[in-house]
């Protein structure tokens, strides 16, 4: 659905179902240079399971207008305000990559609204190398292509896809090219600048789930495992794939998330 939010056209994927703010809401937060299409196989899946789903395109991403946020905190404030505007309660925040950092900040902001946190290919920090930061300014298309290549495991290299006929690389490059040209640069700098992850992780009081990827080259498994140790009682799973876990292992991820959600009161 498209709404006018903070003076800009804002797109919010709802998984093909109407938004119902009386239900438990799953809020999917995309990663750097991505948009709602990162969660093609999660948004519809959970919307058809009876959850209310929102997968917003952050400003300047996907179908949303506006200028991209310049920090993780700004991203979190934007989401927090969006939840208020949509009158959503009982929200489970599901972040992928950069979306995990935004989720950590939302944990600080949201009070009773937040019911649980799910981190997919996440960490408490996402340092970005200078080469990629510079390239995202000089040649965002090239930077996107490199991220798509690094971000996928062997399924990307070999054009293997659970969705018949789809290509991780071809889809990934085109999804990233839908964003404003400055979106990736601001996202990567936001990640690189973020340094409050340790404190934020230690302060998590709601149930938490982390699903990590064995062959993750963007947020390496080692970093993810250190991250989950900071969170009290974080249920942790590791899948055999690359960073783009939602499209590389959709059924396994959905099954883990579904089981976790069923355990929530």
């Amino acid at each position: 659905m498209i709404i006018n939010f903070k003076g800009a056209k804002t797109y919010i994927g709802t998984g093909g179902k109407s938004l119902d703010n009386t239900k438990k809401t799953l809020c999917f937060l995309h990663g750097s240079g991505q948009n709602h299409l990162s969660f093609i196989q999660q948004a519809r899946f959970f919307a058809y399971k009876g959850y209310s789903v929102i997968a917003p395109d952050m400003p300047g991403h996907g179908f949303s207008d506006g200028n991209p946020c310049k920090s993780i905190k700004e991203n979190a404030d934007w989401i927090s305000d969006l939840l208020v505007k949509l009158k959503l309660k009982n929200v489970v925040v599901i972040g992928h990559s950069q979306g995990c950092l935004v989720a950590l900040e939302l944990n600080r902001i949201l009070k009773s609204t937040l019911e649980a946190l799910i981190f997919v290919a996440g960490s408490n920090e996402i340092p970005v190398n200078k080469f990629l930061l510079d390239l995202s300014k000089e040649n965002p298309q090239k930077a996107s292509q490199m991220m798509v290549t690094w971000g996928h495991g062997i399924d990307g290299d070999m054009s293997i896809n659970k969705w018949p006929g789809h290509s991780h690389y071809g889809e990934g490059n085109n999804i990233m090219s839908m964003n404003k040209s400055t979106a990736l640069r601001y996202d990567l700098h936001s990640c690189d600048d973020y340094s409050d992850g340790i404190d934020a992780a230690k302060n998590i009081k709601v149930p938490a789930l982390a699903v990590l990827a064995k062959n993750d080259q963007m947020t390496p498994l080692k970093s993810g495992l250190k991250f989950v140790e900071l969170i009290k009682n974080c249920e942790t799973h590791t899948l055999d794939c690359g960073h783009f876990l939602p499209s590389e292992r959709p059924m396994e991820l959905n099954s883990i998330i579904n089981s976790f959600l069923l355990k929530l009161k």
Partner: peptide, 26 residues
Amino acid sequence: NMEVGGHLYTRISNPTVAALEQRLAA
């Protein structure tokens, strides 16, 4: 419901045909 990818009937998709499709996309 096209919630996730997979095969339900060969008129729509098939694993061998999908390998060909993904090779062509690549």
